[in-house]
Design a protein around this nucleic acid. Sequence first.
DNA 1: TGTCTCGGCGG
DNA 2: CCGCCGAGACA
Length: 268
Amino acid sequence: MEVKRSSDVIGLPSGWVREEVVRKSGLSAGKTDVYYYSPDGIKCRSKPQLARLVGDNIDLTAFDFRSGKILQSSLRKNKRLKGATFDYTRGVRHDASLVLPIRQTASIFKQPVTVKRNHPQSKTRTDLKHGPQDQPKQLFWEKRLQGLNASDITAEVFQVLDLPRSIKGVGPNLTDENLLQSVAAALHLSNQPLTGQQATKALMDKNPGVNINTDQPLIQALVVTDEDIRRQERRGAIGDRDVEKKVQASYKYGKLKSTNNIGRLQTT
DNA sequence: TGTCTCGGCGG
DNA sequence: CCGCCGAGACA
């Protein structure tokens, strides 16, 4: 029984657990089954079953059951009924913990674009090979969030978190909060290990358009040592045996194509 | 009886 | 091909 558990998967509401079980025999050996456990321990083995459990409270259309993440492409799908006015309430029923904050201004949200090409068979057309392409991301989109604060229900502004010394930003005048947003968004959306930016800060400043890897957060590539992991684990009162297991697990997640981003910052 | 696991149907 | 669920195996 090969089981991977990720108790605190980023992107899932707290209390939910995602589990991957690899089939070890039979014709379908090697295939993985994904299960979710609700906060009260109910096991879900399919998206319909999950939808039944959460009812109308959470809209799961953008939720990818297998990966446990939000489907980037479906966030910006342009579906407009002909003749009908745009439904501004669409999207507000998403659980806040499942979707990124996206401005839903009518003029900007879900507008179609038309692509015109000079050359009928330009190279860019044939370069669409790595699966479906996502909407272009604005470079340094994080900066648009500057000056905006999250607050609780009493309008009390949440305190900005401190970042570890080892995390260094690579953009122009990015705040710590920007970096956090950048990392959080990447954890939400990326199916790949997060490594940070490989290019040097100087190179990025010189020509961001060329040198930025938009799949990665705007932090310099950093090395996470075993000791880093152990130190972090000790901060939450976890027994040493568990710590050791988690260190091992982090290696595993780093090697396998897992959907759990925790422990998947590049190790050497 | 409940859980785990793989088969296999149907989209 | 893959999501979903049935049902056999096993405790």
